Deep mutational scan, measured.
Amino acid sequence: DLPPEQWSHTTVRNALKDLLKDMNQSSLAKECPLSQSMISSIVNSTYYANVSAAKCQEFGRWYKHFKKTK
Rank of each mutant, 00 (worst) to 15 (best):
D1S: 07
D1W: 01
L2S: 15
P3D: 15
P3G: 09
P4Q: 12
P4F: 07
P4C: 04
Q6G: 06
Q6D: 05
Q6P: 05
W7P: 00
W7H: 00
S8I: 04
S8D: 06
S8H: 03
S8V: 09
S8W: 00
H9T: 15
H9R: 14
H9Y: 15
H9F: 07
H9A: 10
T10C: 13
T10W: 14
T10P: 11
T11Q: 13
T11A: 12
V12I: 14
V12E: 01
V12M: 09
R13F: 05
R13Y: 08
R13P: 00
R13C: 10
N14V: 06
N14T: 14
A15T: 14
A15S: 05
A15L: 03
L16C: 06
L16K: 01
L16I: 10
L16P: 00
D18S: 10
D18F: 06
D18K: 12
L19C: 15
L19I: 07
L19A: 07
K21W: 02
D22P: 02
D22I: 11
M23T: 06
M23G: 07
N24R: 08
Q25N: 05
Q25M: 14
Q25I: 14
S26Y: 08
S26E: 15
S26Q: 08
S26G: 11
S27I: 15
S27V: 12
S27Q: 13
L28W: 10
L28R: 02
A29D: 08
A29Q: 06
K30A: 10
K30W: 03
K30Y: 14
E31N: 10
E31T: 11
E31G: 05
C32P: 01
C32F: 02
C32L: 02
C32Y: 02
P33I: 00
P33L: 00
P33G: 13
L34W: 05
L34H: 01
S35C: 04
S35E: 10
Q36L: 07
Q36E: 15
S37E: 12
S37F: 09
M38P: 00
M38W: 06
M38S: 12
I39S: 00
I39W: 02
I39F: 03
I39Q: 01
S40L: 13
S40N: 09
S40Q: 13
S41Y: 06
S41W: 06
I42G: 01
I42L: 13
I42R: 00
I42A: 03
V43G: 04
V43K: 06
V43R: 04
V43I: 15
N44Q: 10
S45H: 13
T46P: 11
T46M: 12
T46S: 13
T46F: 13
Y47R: 10
Y47G: 14
Y47V: 11
Y48M: 09
Y48R: 13
Y48N: 07
Y48G: 11
A49R: 10
A49I: 06
A49Y: 15
N50T: 07
N50D: 08
N50R: 10
N50P: 11
N50V: 06
V51A: 03
A53C: 09
A53K: 14
A54S: 10
A54N: 05
A54M: 07
A54Y: 10
K55R: 09
K55I: 02
K55M: 12
K55N: 10
C56I: 13
Q57F: 09
E58M: 06
E58G: 03
F59T: 00
R61G: 05
R61A: 09
R61F: 06
W62M: 02
W62A: 01
Y63D: 00
Y63A: 01
K64R: 11
K64S: 09
H65K: 07
H65E: 12
H65T: 13
H65Q: 13
F66T: 06
K67R: 07
K67N: 15
K68H: 09
K68A: 05
K68C: 04
T69A: 06
T69V: 07
T69C: 05
T69M: 06
T69S: 04
K70M: 14
K70S: 02
